[in-house]
Structures are given as C-alpha cells and as structure tokens.
C-alpha cells in the first residue's frame, strides 16, 4: 500500500517536472519578448545575454505606439478578426451540418474534395485568388479578407465541425423532426448549443489566424490607413536596421488581447483543443 503511494508520488514528480520543463521552454520566447520590450537598445543583443532590463524602460511602449498608427491598426485588426470569426462560425457550421446530418447524393465525395483542398499549397493559390479579387474590383478593400469567411470558412474548420456533429446522436434530431422542427431550427437550436466546445475551438483558430494574418492585408490593401497590426509591425524593420526593443513592445501590445482572451476562456479553449486532437 505504502509502496503504491510512493510509486504514485514518484510518477507525479516526474510528470510535473517534465511539464514544468516544457512550459518553461514555451514561455521563454514570451519572456524574451517582454524583457526585450523594456530594454534600452544597447542591452538588446549583448553577449552574455542580459535577461532582465536594467532599468526597465517603460517609455518604449509610448514610443512604439507613437511610431505607427497603433490604435487605428488595432481597430482595423479587431474589426477584421470579429467579422472573420462570425463569418466562419456561421458558414462553416452550416456546411458541416449539411455534410454530417443531411442525406444527399454525392455528399461524402464532396466532403472528401473539400478536405482535399487542404493539400493544395497556399502559395499556388496566391496569384489566381488575387486575380479573382482584382476582377471583382475588391483590391484595396476589406472584402478579400472577410468574404471568404462567409463562404464556407475553410476546409479545416468544416472538417472539425463535421467530425463533432457526426458524434451527436441522430435520434435527437429525429425527435425534433417528428415535433415538426425545420432543419434550420434543428441546426440552430439543437446542434449548435450541443457543440459549444468545438465552436470555441474554431473561433480561437480563426481569431488567431485573422489576428496574425500578415500576407493577406499586405497584398490586398494599398492604403496604409487600412492596414493591420501585423503589417504595421514591419515598420520597425528597415533594410539595414531593426529597432528590436520597440518592435517587441509593439508585439507585446499586439499579442496582449489574445493572451487576455485566453485567460478568460481558458477552460473552454483547453477542452476544445483536447477535442480537436482526439480524432473523433
């Protein structure tokens, strides 16, 4: 009995040390970013490494915000991110519902084709999609960055949602149908409320992707007042020089909303991630 207890203790010690080690490894870049953001420029690249700024230079944050239209870009980024999340949640879940709960000819084939689009390297699609958007007259507008989210929301999201919807018992839906509920009502009042974890996961993935998207805004937006934070951060990197401390201060401010969102929705997010990795 005692040896069993001892074994459990040892196992836990090993487990916790491994986990601590990994969390330290993952936290180092974040720590480095924040530490650099508070350093004067002379302390950024010193050998041996200076881990803590001496003294912390809070002014960097003011300078970083002043160096480019931070608040304008923050607003643009938030606006795009919210629209992307709303659009993806709505359209991807509708498509996934159709792929999982409605019966129609060629459904599975079309699902596989949808999945297959994930194998196309994104670089190959850059010029064709640019051409489509330019023919539509959408260059230098937010439309190329928003409309796709409302048109299916991407194969990966559809796949995630479909896999979850499949696990919802058909009996529930049958019962609703007998009661005379329309398909849209079943989707919105039965399936969606049961799928909160996966919807959270999709929201987080979409939010992260949209928030950090650099190439899309860079290509499609020609008017600097429309740019996003990811594009704005580049102004700290010139051909020959980079102001690392200001870049890191601006990066910290850019990452901050995501970190706050993570802490607020921590539980739902971790359960959602567990679900997306469980291979249901």
């Amino acid at each position: 009995m005692r040896s069993q207890k001892k074994m459990r203790l040892i196992r836990e010690i090993i487990l916790y040390s491994v986990l601590t080690l990994f969390s330290v490894i993952f936290l180092v870049p974040l720590f480095w970013m924040i530490s650099t953001s508070l350093k004067p420029e002379s302390q950024v690249m010193t050998v041996p490494v200076q881990w803590l700024p001496k003294p912390p230079q809070w002014r960097n944050y003011i300078d970083a915000v002043k160096a480019f239209p931070f608040f304008r870009y923050f607003w643009n980024t938030s606006f795009l991110a919210i629209l992307n999340v709303v659009g993806t949640l709505f359209s991807a879940s509708l498509v996934a519902y159709s792929f999982s709960k409605l019966r129609w000819k060629g459904r599975n084939q079309l699902f596989y084709i949808t999945i297959a689009t994930m194998f196309i390297p994104s670089q190959v699609l850059i010029i064709p999609t640019y051409l489509i958007f330019s023919k539509l007259g959408w260059i230098n507008t937010y439309l190329p960055l928003v409309v796709p989210a409302f048109c299916g929301g991407g194969a990966f999201n559809i796949f995630l949602l479909r896999q979850f919807f499949v696990s919802i018992p058909d009996e529930l839906l049958e019962a609703a149908r007998i009661d005379g509920a329309s398909e849209f009502r079943i989707y919105s009042q039965i399936v969606l409320p049961l799928s909160k974890p996966v919807l959270f996961t999709v929201s987080i993935f979409t939010l992260l992707f949209s928030w950090n998207d650099f190439f899309g805004p860079l290509l499609y937006l020609h008017d600097p007042s429309k740019w996003t934070l990811a594009v704005g951060l580049r102004s700290f990197q010139q051909q020959y020089t980079t102001t690392w401390n200001l870049l890191m201060a601006a990066s910290t401010l850019t990452a901050l909303p995501l970190i706050i969102i993570y802490f607020i929705f921590q539980k739902s997010i971790t359960s959602g991630f567990a679900l997306s990795g469980s291979g249901k």
Binding site: I127, Y130, S134, F215, L218, L219, D223
Partner: peptide, 21 residues
C-alpha cells in the same frame, strides 16, 4: 505614393505584376 517595408515590398510588387495590377 505608397511606401512598403523593404522586406515585404518584393512579394507585394511581384504578385501585383503577375496579376497585371
């Protein structure tokens, strides 16, 4: 006029040229 960071300029220009834009 539009100034774009040296590191990203070439991608943006190249793609716009490829698309005739």
């Amino acid at each position: 006029a539009l100034g774009i960071s040296f590191w990203d300029y070439w991608d943006k220009l190249r793609i716009s040229i490829a698309a005739g834009q």
